[in-house]
């Protein structure tokens, strides 16, 4: 179909041209995005209470690993816990 090259037609074309036409792209094909980087921030500032809590947590975990290990070895018959 022939389109008349009138100003109205040109307006329509211009409008169509300026209308956003989004596209979808797989993340792996997309340009890399600037992420929030922790570089230069150093380690997190923790309050004394938080540091103590994490320390207690560390002790708890180590104790539990040892306890579970002993229990497992006892069940396997490698040691006798009495």
């Amino acid at each position: 179909m022939a389109i008349k090259n009138t100003s109205a037609t040109l307006d329509l074309l211009a409008e169509a041209a300026s209308r956003p036409l989004p596209y979808v792209i797989h993340p792996l094909d997309d340009a890399p995005e600037q992420k929030l980087s922790g570089e230069g921030l150093g380690t997190m500032r923790l309050s004394l209470a938080a540091r103590l809590a994490l320390g207690a947590l560390r002790a708890y975990i180590l104790l539990m690993i040892v306890l579970v290990g002993l229990k497992a070895m006892s069940l396997a018959g490698w040691i006798n816990l009495g």
Partner: peptide
């Protein structure tokens, strides 16, 4: 992830997808 571009890219010199 959803980019806004314009058409027709070739005629208007816009960057293609």
């Amino acid at each position: 992830s959803i980019h806004e571009t314009t058409v027709p890219a070739s005629t208007l010199g816009m960057p293609p997808a």
